[in-house]
């Protein structure tokens, strides 16, 4: 048998096998279930409302608040938040927002429900720098914007916390509060370092 026939037979056989392989998306940078579970258990992936208030007051430039409520419900967001409705995260191609290496995205919705779902999706896709606001907007409103005075029997820490929250409330709702638009930052799509498309070609 000459080389051409041998080669033809081999490549036709391999090609037939290749044609029968199921076409599936490759997911090498995605996390598997154990890695996702590890991320879930990591406290560092969650922000409490008090931590968020502290970051906002200190003017941390690296945080990006993402409000994932439907666009129709996007009223009175936490200051500086941008609206990315959960329903449209794939249709409107917001991937560049979630998949980047510079800003810390803090996701929130009314409560933990949809925010946790979105966080799971981004985490599983291997996107980094996405964090979850514990308790969502409800918790933010009740604890930071409208803190309750602790009962007189409460421990001293509760009073300290109330002091801080009252100050934060003053900061976010008081007369000195800046109009929310002032903190809107221009978004530049930043490619994540790890999954960077290779530049190639011969041109």
């Amino acid at each position: 048998m000459n080389t051409r026939l041998t080669l033809s037979t081999i490549i036709l056989a391999l090609g037939t096998v290749a044609a029968m392989l199921p076409g599936k998306e490759n997911d090498s940078v995605m996390l598997n279930e154990r890695q996702v579970l590890q991320e879930m258990l990591l406290d560092a992936n969650y922000f409490s409302v008090d931590e968020l208030a502290h970051l906002l007051i200190s003017g941390d430039p690296s945080i990006q608040l993402i409000d994932i409520r439907p666009a129709a419900d996007f009223k009175e967001p936490i200051r500086g938040a941008i609206n990315v409705p959960f329903d449209s995260i794939f249709t409107d191609n917001f991937a560049y927002l979630f998949d980047q290496g510079v800003m810390k995205n803090i996701l929130y919705s009314d409560d933990d429900h949809t925010a946790a779902q979105l966080w799971m999706i981004t985490t599983q896709l291997g996107y980094q720098n996405n964090y979850l606001l514990k308790g969502g907007l409800t918790e933010w409103k009740s604890s930071i914007l409208d803190p309750k005075y602790p009962e007189s029997t409460a421990p001293k820490e509760a009073f300290d916390l109330y002091q801080r929250r009252a100050a934060a409330s003053q900061y976010f709702t008081g007369a000195r509060a800046l109009p929310p638009t002032d903190l809107f930052k221009p978004l530049s799509p930043i490619k994540r370092k790890k999954k960077k498309k290779v530049e190639g070609g011969c041109s």
Binding site: E33, L37, M40, H113, A116, L132
Partner: peptide, 15 residues
Amino acid sequence: DPIHAHETWMLLSQL
């Protein structure tokens, strides 16, 4: 803990 409950639901549903 609602966060962990929803996350667990997502994780197991995805499996």
